[in-house]
Structures are given as C-alpha cells and as structure tokens.
Simulated scan of single mutants.
Amino acid sequence: MADMSMRHVECWLPHLQRFEPSHPLRALLGRADRMGEGAKGYLGGLAAYFDCGHGLPAAALTRDHLAGDAAQAAAWLSADPAWVQPDLSGARLLACGQLPLSMDEARSLAEPLKPIFAEADMSLEVSAPDRWHLRLPSSDTLPDFAAPEQALGEDLYEHLPHGLHARRWRALFNDAQVVLHQHPVNAERRLRGLPPINSVWFWGGGALPSNVTATLEGVIGEDLLLLALARRAGIAMQHRSAPSIATVEAGWLVDLQDQSADDVARQWLPSLQALCSRKQVMLAFASGERWLHRPWHRLRLWRRNAP
C-alpha cells in the first residue's frame, strides 16, 4: 500500500498496452521518472488503496452503497446481468454489468429468476439496472468466484467455480441462462440491436466489512465500487470532471482506469497536463507500470516518449 503521507496525486489509468506509441499521454511518460511496479488489475488496484481486513467483498460494499442494508444479511454475492456468446469451443463472457439496461427491463428479467434462488434460500435483489445482488444466509460455503475482469472475452466455463461447493453454483448459473434465453425482454432488445441479457455472473462474495481504511485523502471518479469503498472509509469524493481533475490536491486518486485511450486523449488529457504542471502526479496503469511526473519535468524537452 502507498504511504498515507504521499505528496503526489495518484492517477489510475487503463492498461498501458491500450495506448499506442503515438498517443499524446506518452509524452508525459517520456519526461517522467519510471517507478517500480504497482498493483495490477481492477480489484488489485482497489486493494492497494483500501484495506477491508479480509479480501474485498465487492457485493456487500456495492449493495450497501446503493441500498444501505448490507449489514442486515450474513453475506452478499453479486449476480450481475451478463451477455454470453456461444462459439465453437464453448461460450464467452462478452459483458458483465455496464450494459444498456433500464430498471424496468432489469426487474422484468430478474422476476422469473427469483424463485430459482429462493429455492436455494437466497433472495435476488435488483439494486440498480446493472447491479444485481444475492442476499445469502451464510458465507461459509462460498467457493472462489472469478471477477468479471478475469473472465471477460474468455471461455466462461474456465472461470466457473471449482471445488467442494461449486456444483450448486454451476447449476444455478445454468438454470439462470435457461430462464433468460427466451425472455421477452431479450426478444425486444434484439429488435433494437442491443445485446441480450442471457446470463448472470457471480462474483465478489462476502460480508460487509466492519472497517475500511484508505491510503488516500479523497477520490475523483464514477466507479461504483470505488465510491462504495471511499464512503465506507470516510474519505472525500468528487465526481469526475475536467475542472476537478485539473485542481485536485496531493493525496487524492483520479480514477480514469475505466476510460478508453481515446477518451483519455480527447476528454481528460488537457486536465492531466494542467495538473502535471503544478503537482507531482503518479501515473499508475492498471497493468502495473508507474511513472512519477514532477512539475519541472515539463522542461525535459530532449526526452522522447516512453516505450
């Protein structure tokens, strides 16, 4: 974890490989100092900024952020709406959450799933259109579930749970797919050229942590789990905007890891450049690479772009 006394702004960016050699952000990297490797991945990055004691129970944290009742259940598990595409070798997880979906559609899709989970002594809650949660009676029998970032684009059956208690969850996963496959909402979505909601993805299980600590003073971002952690840790939060990024102070995190490289260049780079001209900024990529840019580094005109 980073030192609470850090005197730089932390800017969390997408994987470095997504930035072409000609991307304008690389000019900042070329003038900055390369640092040691940092955390990798979405959950790994969040775990580097926040400590929940044991793991990172994403479902309980996001449920509490959205509904404020996570402490009323022994444990929670995300069962987020997903899009699965069959192929010759099996099926791939193409999207999980972050799908264009209204609350009415979400409730209609979830309604026939509720009896399936009720038979297993669970309650399916539609907390937001793209955030569904299972209220669990106990956390003792939860297997390891792969986070969406681990499974996206890959053969989903390679990422389904294994082990002693996995069979039950695989059966629930398959039952949910059967119910959603012919749901009328998906027929309507196909007519509108939208991807179907033909599966759910289980991940992020656990109980609401009693205490969350942060290595940060505040966060700028829109990611639900990041905001849930920040609120639980009692630190400041701001919505992401060009002015908030350009004027952020040391000790804060600017979250851009959910943006595309094009969006970074088009929408956020001028604010980042303004920030780098007045503050020390750690440019931390989701793939682990890090560069520290100090204000006087703008004078290193002889340096080329970073590799």
Rank of each mutant, 00 (worst) to 15 (best):
H15C: 07
D262A: 12
A246P: 11
R266S: 13
D140M: 06
D130S: 15
P24R: 03
L216E: 07
Q98L: 06
A118R: 11
W12F: 12
T213G: 08
V264S: 00
R63I: 02
P209V: 00
V200R: 04
H297E: 04
A48R: 14
L28R: 09
L160W: 11
R300I: 01
S127A: 15
R232A: 14
G30P: 11
D155W: 10
A39M: 01
A82H: 08
H165Y: 11
L16N: 05
D69N: 13
E158K: 14
A39Y: 00
P14D: 02
L253K: 07
A60T: 10
A242V: 14
E217K: 14
E105V: 05
M4W: 05
R232W: 06
W12Y: 11
I116W: 07
L13R: 07
P209Q: 02
L180T: 08
Q280K: 13
G90E: 04
V179L: 03
G221I: 04
R266K: 14
P295T: 03
L56E: 08
L191A: 15
P24V: 02
S287E: 06
L16K: 08
D64M: 02
A74S: 12
D258M: 00
D262I: 00
G153D: 10
I245A: 07
L256D: 08
L142N: 11
G218A: 10
R192S: 11
D51T: 10
E154V: 08
Y42L: 09
R231F: 01
R92G: 09
C52L: 08
S241I: 06
V200K: 05
L28Q: 10
L299Q: 13
H54L: 10
F19W: 04
L134F: 11
C276V: 03
V84G: 07
A147M: 06
V126T: 09
H162M: 11
S210G: 15
V264Q: 00
D121C: 10
Y49W: 15
P112W: 07
F285A: 04
Q85Y: 04
Q257D: 13
D80A: 06
P307V: 06
T213F: 02
L113P: 03
W12P: 02
T215Y: 01
H15F: 01
T213N: 11
R63F: 02
M103C: 01
D69M: 01
W296F: 13
N211Q: 15
L164W: 13
A187Y: 05
D80Q: 08
E119K: 12
L56K: 09
G204L: 01
P86A: 09
L46M: 06
W169N: 03
G55A: 08
G90T: 03
R278K: 12
W296A: 14
A286L: 09
R168S: 13
